[in-house]
Nucleic acid binder design. Structure first.
Lengths: 193, 193
DNA sequence: TGCAAAGGTTGCAGAGTGTGCAAAAGGTGC
DNA sequence: GCACCTTTTGCACACTCTGCAACCTTTGCA
């Protein structure tokens, strides 16, 4: 059975989703300008003040729930065998993360449409600690076998990140399979562009 | 001799630099919170309203003047011979852009320090049309020789971008030469990671 | 020199985001 | 029904950013 804490967590997640849905609906139907905190709150039947109990910025409600927590990238990397070559580890992590988009593909299309109409959203919603995370990942990759230096580490991380994003984007546009496109992109990286 | 328009442009650029200098000084000396538009304007001896005649967001004043205009990337690419393989064209463009950081290296260090202390700055200041530009570049690259498809185009662009950024970052940290590091990164890309 | 057009600066009013605080409302366990 | 904890809400406030109209400065030209 369900503990009180679990119930609270579940309800909170549900409400968060409900607010997000209301926000996206307004933004798609009436434009991004119409999606003020006041309007979103009214549609979701909460007070404006409460909106900020669920999202710390307005934009956070208008983009997809992130596919991974920032620290998770380093965690997943750390879970790989220590003697595995860096590129193999990164590929494995990329595959895990790319696979997560499947279950929420329909939603992703919706958010994709919104982002296509309002490209500034992506920039505004970008995680604040992105660069710090990147630095941490560089450090983690640097100590693995098959890495010749920090520049190599940087390129490996940016490349794998780029491959993941490219695969997802391309799949969204062309309708192909994320998994196959990811493998294709990773092969390009591995064998040289 | 100087035309009136040229004088105006020059003065405008100078004032913009003066405001930026004041802003960065406050942010470094007293922290990012202290750097309100009001405080910056007071330090630069202008009214808060005037601040927004020079910068459209506060963050714009706190990051380095961009090394290239958004459209410039496509322009430079368009200036390359049409039968040149895509990767060669991208490498050439990357070299041109990386070379621009030299003359302002001292300033770059200062902004780097600020960005290191406040990573959220980079995210907030990110160009709004970034993703749209990217799409345009993909399209431009796609039609060049040596590109096997859109996914390949994406990887080429992201890779070259990544190489440029990595080289600059790495140079800032290790003190190496941007040019040499860029070549190293591009070679990694070309021969495979 | 003097005047008119053009460009730059400023104040003001207002919309919108986001925060701290304390009061009210709601749910849970005894 | 009562005490405890969490959530929601209102209120006041700081801050960013915009449109508008007034004002001042620079410039072109007679």
């Amino acid at each position: 059975m369900e503990t009180p804490q679990e119930r609270r967590d579940r309800r909170r997640a549900e409400k968060r989703q409900a607010i997000r849905t209301a926000a996206v609906k307004i933004a798609l139907d009436e434009g991004l300008e119409a999606a003020t905190v006041e309007a979103i709150s009214a549609a979701a039947d909460i007070s404006p003040r409460t909106f900020f109990n669920y999202f710390s910025t307005k934009e956070e409600a208008l983009v997809m729930e992130p596919l991974w927590r920032p620290e998770e990238f380093t965690e997943l990397l750390g879970a790989r065998p220590g003697d595995e070559p860096a590129f193999e580890s990164l590929k494995a992590v990329a595959r895990i993360l790319a696979a997560r988009v499947g279950p929420i593909w329909a939603d992703a299309q919706l958010f994709g449409e919104l982002r296509r109409r309002h490209p500034e959203l992506a920039a505004k919603a970008r995680a604040a600690d992105e660069t710090k995370i990147m630095e941490n990942v560089f450090e983690a990759v640097r100590d693995r076998p098959g890495v010749s230096g920090k520049l190599h580490a940087r390129m490996l991380v940016i490349g794998t990140f780029g491959a993941t994003i490219s695969a997802v984007q391309e799949a969204a546009e062309s309708g192909g399979s994320v998994e196959e496109l990811l493998e294709e992109a990773l092969t390009l990286l591995e064998n040289g562009l």
